[in-house]
Write a protein that binds this DNA or RNA. Structure first.
Lengths: 150, 150
DNA sequence: TATTATAAGATAAAAATAATGATTATTATA
DNA sequence: TATAATAATCATTATTTTTATCTTATAATA
């Protein structure tokens, strides 16, 4: 945990920014909720628990900054709010998501899976891929089982 | 064009909705701009050119309805606005996008490309896939050439 | 320490979307 | 065809999310 904060601090520094207490608090919330997909509002409320004096605008600005530095990814599952997802360290590519249409759960897939597809796209469309977003919408295992029980 | 409107009309009917003049005007705008990725505002302005009496709320509701019926897909490229994209007829799956980070152009890929990946996800994660979203962010062919010229 | 730059906080503003309510149009039925 | 029931519309307002502004505070540098 501490070393990850430390590394993010360095990333900020090398881009000319500082890890202020507010920014650190925000980063820590993101680290503590790595599995979730928090909206700006979610992050704000969680940061507020520990640092009640922080402002919403600061959280927004921090998330924007972290997105710019590719420390987090801003994603949208179609529910109207942007969500922020910490990039895994050393991950060349953004991970994928499985969004359950019934219970709303969001699972992550770390494996790349797209290597072949990307090779095809780069070759056939002459498009230089920098990043990708892949989300599957469907029914998660648990919700499928619920149906079977009936 | 006419037959596509006709088919969308049938899709609406079979779901218990009607193709009102306002809805038809909206659908026609979508058909005429199939290559673009229009925001609700864009659609509204275009529909207004031909049917100036239409209201923004109607456009929003129509787009919502069309999304519900899977006639259009609501997508988000991360720029804050939802965009609406007509589903290709007979397309079992939503097409993919190539978003250029430099010029902002959005190209479409009709080919599925994900069959293998989906098979893996369904098997390994026991996730029943209903739909997917795949977007590549990168540099389009034209922008790459611009660089080479320099 | 004085000066300058950067960041924070609070609030207001903007933008996008959704909801409401009154009115009109359409469809089905008598 | 007239009437009732339903559905859709417009105009407006409200809500939600995000961004901008302005002042104050903090930190870095000369």
């Amino acid at each position: 945990m501490e070393d990850r904060v430390e590394r993010i601090k360095k990333q900020l520094h090398s881009a000319g920014y500082k890890l202020t207490p507010q920014r650190e608090a925000t980063v820590r919330v993101l680290l503590e909720h790595e599995e979730d997909h928090l909206s700006a509002e979610d992050v704000y409320l969680l940061v507020k628990e520990k640092s009640p004096e922080i402002g919403l605008a600061t959280v927004y600005r921090t998330l924007e900054l972290l997105t710019e530095l590719k420390i987090v990814d801003k994603i949208n599952f179609g529910d109207g709010v942007s969500r922020y997802d910490l990039r895994k360290e050393g991950a060349a590519h953004f991970h994928h998501h499985l969004v359950c249409l019934e219970c709303g759960s969001v699972a992550e897939i770390e494996e790349d899976l797209l290597e072949d597809v990307e090779a095809i796209v780069e070759r056939e469309w002459k498009f230089k891929i920098k990043d990708h977003r892949l989300t599957f919408h469907g029914i998660c295992h648990r919700c499928q089982q619920k149906h079977e029980e009936k």
